[in-house]
């Protein structure tokens, strides 16, 4: 069993729900009164796939204009970018294009891109057509998802997609990858029998294996 460790940066305009998505995924809850992020927050989480264990180091960045100049600090040497916009505000969708251009200019290695339209619960206020989102995603080589952090829809799939993408990246061209850390897990013999056959997030398997309990710290964020 391989372990892949990758850096994920979450980008997007202010108020689109970047922090809400992560808090939903990592903390399994939704907070209606979340403060705007100042600078950036750091989370770690793990996703277990059939062929690899993926550790994600997630940088949740602030969307405010004043932090714009600090973004390079967070996306530098990232292996994946989670580009989030608000389905109900078209300008947050156009802002994604600036982010993509900026990433293209500044990042050399291959990168997993996932485009996410959040707030799908506000269907009646939708301003971004799903087809348009999908087309643009294909255009930039990203996968497209629509989510609702509020109603917990589609969030798991997003992180799963990142994990699968990183696993593929690591198996594809090992020599190209400089920043993605891949190593064979020492505990592979012990833990593999307990591994679920279908991909699932780590949380669901923690109590099945003693090896897990001993070796893995819980995500630092919760």
């Amino acid at each position: 069993m391989r372990t892949v460790e990758g850096k994920v940066v979450v980008l997007g305009s202010q108020g689109v729900g970047k922090t809400s998505m992560i808090v939903r995924y990592v903390g399994k809850m939704f907070n209606h009164h979340i403060n705007p992020t100042i600078g950036a927050s750091f989370f770690t989480c793990k996703v277990n796939l059939e062929e690899a264990r993926v550790k994600l180091q997630v940088w949740d960045t602030a969307g405010q204009e004043r932090f714009r100049s600090m973004a390079p600090m967070y996306y530098r040497s990232a292996n994946a970018a989670l580009l989030v916009f608000d389905l109900t505000q078209y300008n947050t969708f156009t802002a994604i294009k600036t982010w993509v251009n900026e990433l293209r200019r500044n990042i050399e290695g291959p990168m997993v891109l996932v485009l996410v339209g959040n707030k799908s619960d506000l269907e009646n206020q939708r301003k971004v057509d799903p087809e348009e989102g999908r087309k643009y995603a294909v255009n930039i080589g990203a996968t497209y998802y629509e989510t609702s952090a509020l109603q917990n829809e589609g969030i798991e799939q997003v992180f799963l997609a990142i994990a699968i993408g990183l696993a593929k990246l690591s198996s594809g061209s090992r020599d190209l990858m400089t920043s993605l850390r891949v190593y064979d897990s020492v505990s592979s013999g012990l833990s593999s029998p307990d591994m679920p056959l279908s991909p699932s997030s780590e949380e669901s398997t923690t109590d099945k294996s003693i090896a897990f309990a001993i070796q893995e710290r819980p995500p630092a964020c919760c």
Partner: peptide
């Protein structure tokens, strides 16, 4: 409040 849920780099 958000400092309570994660490590921040501010």
């Amino acid at each position: 409040e958000s400092f309570k849920s994660a490590e921040s780099w501010t």
